[in-house]
């Protein structure tokens, strides 16, 4: 089972994130999204940033979590390559995101992600956990 994969969408990009738990799905979705933005191998972990997000349900929480990370990328110039979920509930997530300040000369920036959308959003729980999120590029 891969951690995440991308699906085709004409204008945008879909991420399918997998995990043995919802926590892992949240982590893999975030890693998937940042791997579109930059080469994560080149990101050095020098900053640990606490991220908190809230939403009416867990599907929307996944979108809110990703958008919170994009906000930090834009407003604080932070790029992350590793995530640890500290507390995850239906309507609340608290996590640590590790990375550093964006350095265009070193990070090989690739695709700009405008936002995670609610379009065709799905978080499924079975033997394994799986989520689909479409990103606006």
């Amino acid at each position: 089972m891969p951690n995440f994969e991308f699906t085709d969408h004409t204008a945008d990009i879909g991420i399918i994130a997998y995990g043995n738990s919802v926590e892992e799905v949240f982590v893999n979705a975030a890693r998937g999204m940042f791997s579109l933005i930059a080469d994560l191998e080149k990101v050095v972990e020098v900053i640990g940033h606490q991220v908190v997000a809230e939403a009416p349900d867990q599907e929307e929480l996944l979108v809110t979590w990703l958008n919170e990370l994009l906000y930090l990328f834009d407003a604080e110039n932070l790029i992350f390559s590793r995530f640890e979920i500290v507390d995850l509930r239906q309507q609340y997530v608290r996590a640590m995101a590790y990375g550093e300040r964006v350095d265009p000369s070193r990070h090989d920036l690739k695709t700009q992600v405008k936002a995670a959308t609610y379009h065709q959003l799905k978080l499924e729980k079975g033997d394994e956990f799986r989520a689909r999120i479409i990103l606006d590029i």
Binding site: A11, Y118, H119, I134, D136
Partner: peptide
């Protein structure tokens, strides 16, 4: 027109 999110583009 092409596939967007919500509204089509």
């Amino acid at each position: 027109i092409h596939w967007g999110y919500g509204f089509p583009i």
